[in-house]
Amino acid sequence: MAVRRSKGETIFLAVNYLVMALLCLSMLFPFWSLLAKSFAAASVPSTQLYFWPSQTTLANYARVFANKNIWIGFGNTIFRTVVGTILSLVMSIHVAYPLSKKYLPNRTFWTSLIVFTMFFSGGMIPEYILVRSLKLYNSRWALIFPILLNTFNMIIIRNYFMSIPDSLEESAKIDGANDLLILYRIIIPLSFPIIATVVLWTAVSHWNAWFDSLIYISDGNKQVLQTILRRIVLEGSLQLMELQGGAMAMEASNVSSEAIKAATVIVATTPILVAYPFLQKYFVKGVLVGSLKG
């Protein structure tokens, strides 16, 4: 693709590249310092700034992974993230599609009914009572069903559907396709970028959620990763303040509480960070429309 550029455009591009590079450096910095800290040995002071710690150790990670509960947490979090995201996506698309159609009877009413709930909700107590009476208490589904639909995400999908030219659909209708067929054959394939966006949003919010687990789950085997990591961090700092109970760890420990904290952040975020590059191909400029039309 040899595009001739004017001088102005070239300067603009150069500046653009530079600005992006600087911005990235500033954004990489906190993450990098956490990563570096997570490898720091206990002898490295937690308050010092460094590019890479003078003494490194894997003991911080060993400590995090030595806790057998972390695997339980990973299992439960992956479950809620994968199942929750798939179900949410399926629901969102199927609600968004009818609402995107101007000819849906009483469309304004249905939309209002849904958007209203974004601003008015009953609060934690009735929601807890509801989950209890649905027999979802202490079940992994309690972390999925109450947030099955996110109105914001759904509206974003709906508006994307609306921006797809009607002409595509009309020609399919003439060929005798019904609404379902149009949704699956035309609309969804055209909407991969927005679907990827919503998948990312939903997955990340599932991955990071922990308070619902505290409310709805009492069984230790159903705890999510975030609650277990919070506990590991706490244990790390508890060792610094043990009041009674005497000698805690007799051998000089090679972990420091700040380094454990850094390691848990890395452990908690890396898996979900890795998901992004896989979705990225759907954000690449203008591939799909052209191929579909051709």
């Binding site: 199927h94 599609y97 609402l99 849906l104 379902l180």
Partner: peptide, 13 residues
């Protein structure tokens, strides 16, 4: 068909 798609969502809400 359109309405059928909407029903589960409305019930959830």
């Amino acid at each position: 068909y359109l309405f059928l798609l909407l029903i589960p969502g409305v019930l959830w809400y």
